[in-house]
Design a binder for these strands. Sequence first.
DNA 1: CCACTGATGTTGACGCCGTTCACACCTCGG
DNA 2: CCGAGGTGTGAACGGCGTCAACATCAGTGG
Lengths: 204, 204
Amino acid sequence: MTARATYHHGDLKAALVEAAVAAAREGGEAAVGLNRLAAGLGVSASAAYRHFPEGREDLLVAVGDVGRRRLAERLAARIADADADADAEPAPGTATAARRRFRASGRAYVEFVLDEPGLFQVANRHDRGRLPGADPFGVLEACIADLVDTGVLDEDRRTDAAAAAWAAVHGLAVLLTEGPLRRLPPDRRERVLERTLDMVESGL
Amino acid sequence: MTARATYHHGDLKAALVEAAVAAAREGGEAAVGLNRLAAGLGVSASAAYRHFPEGREDLLVAVGDVGRRRLAERLAARIADADADADAEPAPGTATAARRRFRASGRAYVEFVLDEPGLFQVANRHDRGRLPGADPFGVLEACIADLVDTGVLDEDRRTDAAAAAWAAVHGLAVLLTEGPLRRLPPDRRERVLERTLDMVESGL
DNA sequence: CCACTGATGTTGACGCCGTTCACACCTCGG
DNA sequence: CCGAGGTGTGAACGGCGTCAACATCAGTGG
């Protein structure tokens, strides 16, 4: 780990991204520094520039991509959990199932941000647009489509519904991690989250 | 402005905050640098540290306070506007008036953030808690109280209502300025804003 | 098998940043 | 008038992002 045998590293780019993700997880954006990371890998700083032509910003975008991908995966997983947990009656494809999935996605979003505030911070601030397979917003849109298909949401109220729902959940996550709601005890967090999800569900 | 007559500046602290606010307005947090600002005022960098003992962070908090104060003022002003514009029938103190004020505050919040993204960014990221007279959240809470008083919102649903509403509006503002909704054309912005306000109003 | 070429890594430098310390100056109260 | 304390200066430190010139390696065509 400390020194390497060969002159070439093998896969410096991947190693840098990995280290940058680790740094972002504890310390957020400020902890992602090219010099430090390169030194940590036993490599000169300029070597990093070979792999990230636009410098630090490129690296941050790469970290952000990882963050968005993990977030999207978490959302999908929690939605699947919600489906699985419902060995209760209502068959999939029903309105209550759609509602359950929708709620699960919102809850998972906030849960992820509380788990990984640093990664989420970088993911938000350095985004060069959607990339296929790593798109949290896409997951949310799918949930909205579910709501429409099952008749929970009127077709004509569909427009911008995803954006509005996203705004509420995203805003709550931001307020809870970087914002003034930062120091809320977990039980109060839970109540606020529940309240927000209620608002979205009954207000959309 | 370029050179000063006296050895002492007079009010360097205020001058630094003013310059920092100007810098933050165009360029956001990254543009607020002690060295640059001090130099711009024709003063050595270390002089700034006399007035901001904790260094840059102190200055950013000061800028944030200005931002929060301006935001709170804007909210109050737009609420007053809404009251004034309503030379239409419904008297103040009615449910529709409370709804109008509530909506005006949400709209004003987003409006301010779009007007002053840099200032808002600093205000969010460097917050050491509420300071009296400069508290946007307090304005929102007053609006909620209005809703309760006029019977729009049930007493027992009051808990965390302000937080949920705030989350929605704040999240929308963040998505519209720093986030993925950044490049939305103004007319679509307006639709999303309206949709979000609808969601909050009917979902609270 | 070898020389060339392009990819990869190194060394050293630049300017900017935040921060600190020892020192100079100016103002004001006693 | 003098001394004390608030205010500003100069110089320095380490760290950062970035770049250009040079060194080294790995694979490919002759």
